[in-house]
């Protein structure tokens, strides 16, 4: 009699443990096993991919898909709850903005212009810079504000402007397109360097050159022009005072009522969800938590180090 009781008790305990394990392995992963869909700016894309990789390394149950397509389509997609997070490389306009859109500043980068040490030009206005890149100003002497005496003093008189650009598939070029070129092409005389170091080398060798580089690509010998009298630096990017600053945002929609794109991980999981009456509201909650956990990571020290490692300025 006693022995039978023990068997029943042991069986009961075993069943409880197994059931507990089943609940844990099916429901618990449910809160962490998740697929996030992130889309938007092609400038932010490499950052999003690196952040996703770092996050999924620490959370192996997580899957994050990053797609590009531009800031505006990304914003539209997140506003319509078609994706989890939008990446944007510009501020939202007042018309696009809404009370349900939460936008996190996650990093900044800036486009700088370097010249040869002998070039007497110190500053360009944004308008002058636009005219140079559009091929409307082709000669250094045509720039207003440069007195002929200051040019003579240097001995070397720079004349035709030689633009040195990063390759068209570089992040620097993408930023230049976003901030200045707005879809236009650089003049035909532009020389495309192999990489940022090559831009530096070509500018160092040519007194007439002006090179496009991001802040982090500069080295000790780079001589940046001030733009609208503002020097490019970590501080002027953080305060947005430097005119060619790029802000990276993650935008989430606070009013998402869509379920996870990957709601159940297995048939048993689905059965348990039904069995324990986990309703769609809880699944939406689970999705929200997954999104916020990723955003928390991006804004954490670890996430910001990923941003820094790719060259942008960290903001947390």
């Amino acid at each position: 009699m006693k022995k039978q009781w023990r068997i029943v008790l042991m069986a009961g305990v075993t069943v409880l443990i197994l059931l507990g394990w089943a609940i844990w392995s099916q429901l618990k992963p449910q809160t962490s096993y998740h697929t996030l869909l992130i889309g938007g700016s092609s400038t932010v894309h490499p950052y999003a991919e690196a952040l996703a990789q770092a996050y999924t390394e620490a959370h192996p149950d997580f899957k994050i898909h990053c797609v590009t397509g531009g800031s505006t389509p990304g914003l539209l997609a997140v506003a319509n709850d078609a994706i989890d997070l939008a990446t944007m490389s510009r501020d939202l306009t007042e018309d696009e903005d809404g009370a349900n859109l939460k936008n996190y500043l996650i990093g900044r980068d800036g486009l700088g212009f370097i010249v040869h040490p002998d070039n007497p030009v110190q500053n360009l206005s944004l308008a002058q810079l636009e005219a140079i890149l559009a091929g409307e100003i082709t000669d250094w002497s045509a720039l207003a504000g440069i007195s002929s005496t200051s040019m003579e003093n240097t001995g070397a008189i720079p004349e035709p402007i030689q633009i040195i650009s990063s390759p068209v598939d570089s992040n620097t070029f993408t930023i230049a397109s976003d901030l200045l070129l707005l879809g236009e092409e650089l003049p035909a005389s532009t020389v495309y360097a192999a990489d940022a170091a090559d831009v530096q080398a070509k500018v160092a060798a040519d007194p007439n050159a002006i090179g496009l580089v991001c802040l982090h690509e500069a080295n000790a010998s780079s001589r940046f022009l001030t733009i609208n009298q503002v020097r490019i630096s970590r501080e002027t990017l953080l305060t947005l005072r430097y005119p060619l600053t790029h802000s990276f945002y993650l935008v989430l929609n606070l009013q998402h009522d869509r379920l996870s794109p990957d709601p159940a991980t297995s048939n048993l999981g689905e059965w348990l969800l039904r069995f324990f009456k986990l309703d769609s509201e809880q699944l939406v909650q689970i999705r929200s938590e997954a999104i916020l956990d990723f955003v928390d990571f991006v804004c954490s020290r670890d996430g910001q180090q990923v941003i820094e490692s790719l060259g942008a300025v960290s903001v947390y």
Binding site: D91, L105, E235, T236, L238, T239, L240, V315, Y316
Partner: peptide
């Protein structure tokens, strides 16, 4: 911007970001 840059000059480890977007 001026206040933020002054602070970051005094405390190089500080991060102060300024963004626009309007009062709302």
């Amino acid at each position: 911007q001026l206040t933020a840059e002054n602070l970051m000059q005094e405390q190089p480890e500080a991060i102060v970001t300024v963004s626009g977007g309007g009062s709302g």
